[in-house]
Design a protein around this nucleic acid. Structure first.
Lengths: 126, 126
DNA sequence: GCCACTAGGTTGGATTTGCCAACCCACTAT
DNA sequence: ATAGTGGGTTGGCAAATCCAACCTAGTGGC
């Protein structure tokens, strides 16, 4: 669903607050025709919604649905991975947590709240 | 890097413990020639490693490097999203956390350890 | 009234990528 | 002798992508 080229980049842009067609095109580098196709597809999948913010001429802004917003952990985790393993330099922070520190994601167990590292997880039905 | 078609599915398989070419091909559904290209690419990117487990005839197993293993949070988050929003049914569990419960990922702040929800994050330099 | 510019696309044609079935080689097992 | 396994490679075709140019319907400047 979000594995097609450009789709997750579109979601990233919407998470970051971009909402207009041309901005998304510029920030992702996606060709405009492909971008149109992806936006339509993401809309029909219920990941994003199109809101008309002007009629005559018709102008639309794109926003995430709940389903789309729930992809934030995925994008955050991927960004963290990219910062750590791909970019050779420290990236400027994007989010700050309510504790006051720059936000970096850590995966915890939803049931107990403890950090979930390699050894704390065991496969079921191997 | 991992946005090409099949790449992240390959990583998923390796995370789940699959290591042989034919198994990866069967579990992902990727065409064999494309799979070959992806495996070579992931190897040169340092995400996976090829280990010869038999010479004459040469046979290889594929394993994740540290860089590749660090993608687990991404795959976990994506699986969680898919289970919640795409699959209409409850999936059989894959991991169990050391606390004894079925594992579901939750994103916390790496600095303070508190859960990181929508309102606890604020953008820096909007 | 004329020109340039913005926003959100659509179109045509070239290029790239992906898919599939078939084939290959070097073994092993029956 | 035959079939099966493992890890590929090859050729031909279909589909997706890319890019530049174009379109429509406005707005702003002079």
């Amino acid at each position: 669903m979000i594995g097609e080229k450009w789709s997750l980049l579109v979601v990233r842009e919407l998470i970051l607050g971009t909402s207009k067609f041309n901005e998304i095109a510029a920030n992702t580098g996606a060709p405009r025709d492909i971008l149109t196709a992806r936006l339509r597809r993401l809309e029909e999948l219920g990941v994003i919604e199109r809101a008309e913010y002007s009629s005559r001429p018709p102008r639309y802004s794109y926003v995430l649905t709940k389903k789309g917003r729930d992809l934030r952990p995925v994008v955050m985790a991927l960004k963290h991975w990219g910062d750590t393993h791909v970019m050779g330099r420290v990236m400027q922070p994007v989010y700050e947590h309510s504790c006051g520190e720059v936000f970096a994601p850590a995966t915890h167990c939803a049931a107990c709240g403890e950090k979930a590292g390699g050894a704390t997880l065991t496969r079921v039905n191997p």
